[in-house]
Design a protein around this nucleic acid. Structure first.
Lengths: 153, 153
DNA sequence: TATTGTTATACTCTATAACTATA
DNA sequence: TATAGTTATAGAGTATAACAATA
């Protein structure tokens, strides 16, 4: 069986076995992602573009590094960067130390659009998060950290 | 701004404001969903097909009901049902009380493939879930419930 | 010869609009 | 006239394979 869950915030629920938990988590994540995509669609920038801009805010990264971070293949990242470059949100620069690489830099317009998008993008989610109890928010905060770590594996 | 977050269960981390939490949650969910899709791809059935089969295990539903449950439009559900019907996993039946409606029934093959898929589909996730602490599993269990409720809104 | 990035191409999933049949 | 479902078409995002430039 699962763990005793001694200090669970919801005493009525026991932790399910790994298989059952994975199944319910998978449904929850897939459904939420579909909802997020639908709600955020056609405003500002795409989810992929958003992540890329956020990733290079603190300094340029190569196309390969970005692809690895986003867990997608290089050609897909090339397309995302193309879109951002056309929109004027990033520029491509050479790396003098390895001229095969392409460093993606964020522009001022890119920084601005990211900040605007940050508030709009999460509007749907933020509205629902705000309706939660502090305990539920803490749970989601911790869950986000766990999911990030699991996905990074 | 967000709530003061007075009784956080994770002392080192305070619950972020609704906007920040929504932002980090969004990234975590989108990244995990991309990972899930990639890991589960081309085995058994698609995520959408999986959810549909699971939904009609306890009795047939109409195409419209399924579309609403999955938060997608009717034509998208028609395509998913087409795929399942071609594969022999569901059958379409009339509703005698309203002949505009189409009731989607699961077949024996559909039930079997769902049970097989259930264990395979969540394999990637279950492996990582099993490596977590009981407390982390409890957190994800609760988070799944919260995400489900938020997505249902 | 190996690696980085791009181009070419195709597949999956989604959506909106137009259509058919039933109510 | 309104509703349930399908068909037609298009768009977004992803992938693999082949190619160019550089190491």
């Amino acid at each position: 069986m699962g763990a005793p869950a001694k200090t669970s915030p919801t005493p009525a629920k026991r932790p399910a076995g790994a298989g059952l938990l994975a199944a319910e988590l998978r449904v929850a994540v897939m459904r939420t992602s579909r909802r997020l995509r639908a709600e955020a669609a056609s405003r500002d920038i795409s989810p992929g573009q958003y992540s890329v801009l956020a990733g290079i805010l603190n300094g340029p990264l190569t196309v390969g590094e970005l692809a690895e971070r986003e867990q997608i293949q290089a050609p897909s990242m090339t397309r995302i960067v193309n879109g951002l470059e056309t929109a004027g949100y990033v520029t491509r620069g050479d790396n003098p130390q390895d001229r095969r690489q392409v460093l993606v830099h964020v522009t001022e317009a890119g920084t601005a659009v990211l900040q605007r998008a940050r508030s709009r993008r999460t509007q749907w989610l933020a509205k629902r998060v705000a309706a939660l109890t502090p305990e539920e928010r803490a749970t989601l905060h911790e869950a986000a950290r766990i999911l990030q770590e699991m996905s990074a594996t």
